[in-house]
Write a protein that binds this DNA or RNA. Sequence first.
DNA 1: CAGCATCCTAGCTGATACTG
DNA 2: CAGTATCAGCTAGGATGCTG
Lengths: 128, 128
Amino acid sequence: MDSEQVQADLFDAKCPSRQVLDRIGDRWSVLVVSTLAEGTLRHGEIAGRIGGITPKMLTQTLRGLERDGLARRTVYAEVPPRVEYALTDLGRDLVGLVRQLTRWAEVHIPDVEAARADYDARPTASRK
Amino acid sequence: MDSEQVQADLFDAKCPSRQVLDRIGDRWSVLVVSTLAEGTLRHGEIAGRIGGITPKMLTQTLRGLERDGLARRTVYAEVPPRVEYALTDLGRDLVGLVRQLTRWAEVHIPDVEAARADYDARPTASRK
DNA sequence: CAGCATCCTAGCTGATACTG
DNA sequence: CAGTATCAGCTAGGATGCTG
């Protein structure tokens, strides 16, 4: 395989890890998915559990998840309106990946933070 | 535990998955780490393998990886200057996580794309 | 309650040019 | 060769106010 091929594999939108990161790399997706992991919830319930998310960002995030087949949106024609969100099978599968991320973090983030502190303390290092 | 505590767990910098995503969620870190997985490389060699990355972004990314203890930077006092980069043990471990991301993507991204195409085609859905 | 419209800011990112 | 400095654009993200 030539270098052009390697480049194509790594760069662009072809790189698989890039695709996942583009999907869950934003500020709220992981949080919303994790919250929905506990079951079907309404818009306000999700907001309450997460805390600090604006209605706009929540809706925007949920729309993205719905579009990508990770969450299902159910509207009940009632007054006042009621909208429920739940994970799809695909979404539940994503939870598994998130758990792997979490597990890795719990194990290794301490090392990362130690290295960071060490780096910042070192006067010789090219500091930011 | 009160709702304040739940919020603290999920939000802020405490959520473990958030920490990983903050670290590898940027455009180049995963690419650079994956490239370094093949061995010790010089600045220009990494740039050549990745393609499309500017010197500034590469240096910036490498600095971040070095700071977090994921990569090691070795400067040789020669003329012309030579600087080599290699993964640390921690960095190599991160490669494992990236491979899991990649694996998940390869399996499920097709479903995501199908759902997306379906969603975009549906005229009734609240489209973006 | 759910969520849309609008405005606005901050930070990532990139293009370019220059230095040790 | 490796790295820095500067300028500029894009867009994720947030604040606010209004509607069905």
